Simulated assay, not measured.
Amino acid sequence: MRGRAGACRYRAGVLAEPAPALSDLALGLIVVVLAVRLGRSPVAHRYWRTSFWWAGAAALAGFVHHGVVKHSERWTGPSWAVISAMVVIAVSYLLAATVAEVLGPRHQRTFWALRSIGIAAYVVLAVTGHAGVNALLACESLTMISIIALWARAARRRHPMAGAVIVALVADGAAAATKAIDPAITQRVALDPTSLYHLAQISGMVLLYAAVSTPRRPDPEPRALAG
């Protein structure tokens, strides 16, 4: 009995998935620091800051998920669902910030129209029996496409932020692609695809922070960009 108790205490004191947990912790801490700094920026829209806060919180929750919750098969699913919901909120604020920057602050209807694309796609999957966390995250890719499309339009109209934001979004997309890398390849650097994805996300978030916090030269009224 003592041996079993000791083994349980030892297991509880060890991270279930060390590399994914620690890489998520690094990502979360960095993003939270960036969120704090955005709060001090005189040029960054408040929606950017809120998006960073939710993204950082999701990564820190990911640290708990990979490090602790993964010890329990019962709570792994609910934990991942909560983290996914946090990611959805972060993406929603990312879209809100994009609409405000590109089209202007009075385009709530445009925001909800674009936001409904991902929601509608998920409803369709749910009705057809394909609901789930992975389906939800897949539908969020449609929202990201909307965000990129808005910034592409802004780039054609020479929005001062467009180039830097697009670079950041491309870097974030490239980070997501690392999850598809063969684990046999990532093991060469003592990482798994999930951990590599977390670390790669850091560069995208830093680039996005730089894009939205840098002082901008005078530009046309946002409403002119919507014409």
Rank of each mutant, 00 (worst) to 15 (best):
V64W: 04
R115P: 05
L95F: 01
A113E: 02
A120T: 13
A121T: 08
V87C: 15
R109V: 14
V102N: 11
A97T: 11
H107R: 11
V88D: 13
T128E: 09
E101A: 12
R109Y: 10
E101Q: 09
T128W: 15
I117D: 10
T98S: 09
T128Y: 09
Y93S: 11
V87I: 15
F111G: 00
M86I: 10
A131W: 09
A100C: 02
P105D: 09
V68P: 01
L94A: 11
R109F: 15
S84H: 02
V87Y: 09
V64L: 04
E73W: 05
Y122G: 07
G104R: 09
E73C: 08
Q108Y: 09
G129L: 04
I117F: 14
V123S: 05
H107S: 05
L95T: 03
N134T: 13
V124Y: 00
P78K: 00
H130A: 05
N134S: 04
T110N: 01
I119N: 13
P78Q: 00
Y93K: 10
V123E: 12
V87S: 08
A90M: 00
V102C: 12
V88W: 11
V124N: 00
E73Y: 00
A90C: 04
G118S: 06
M86H: 14
K70N: 05
V91P: 12
R115K: 06
S116D: 08
V68E: 11
T110C: 02
V82T: 01
G77R: 12
V127C: 11
G67S: 00
W80N: 11
H65P: 03
R109K: 11
A90T: 02
S72T: 06
I117W: 06
A126G: 06
V99M: 04
R74H: 01
S116F: 14
A85T: 05
T76V: 14
T128Q: 14
T76K: 03
G132R: 01
Q108P: 09
A131V: 07
H66K: 04
H130F: 03
G77C: 07
H71P: 02
H66L: 12
H71D: 02
T128N: 11
L95G: 08
R106N: 12
V87G: 15
K70L: 00
G129I: 15
G77K: 13
V91I: 13
A113F: 04
H71S: 03
Q108A: 14
A96S: 10
W112Q: 09
W75A: 07
L95Q: 02
V127R: 01
G67K: 07
N134R: 14
F111N: 01
A131E: 08
G132F: 01
T110Q: 01
T128L: 13
V133H: 06
A126E: 12
A126T: 11
V69Q: 07
T110L: 04
P78R: 01
G129D: 04
I117R: 06
M86P: 11
P105A: 09
V82E: 03
T98W: 07
H65C: 03
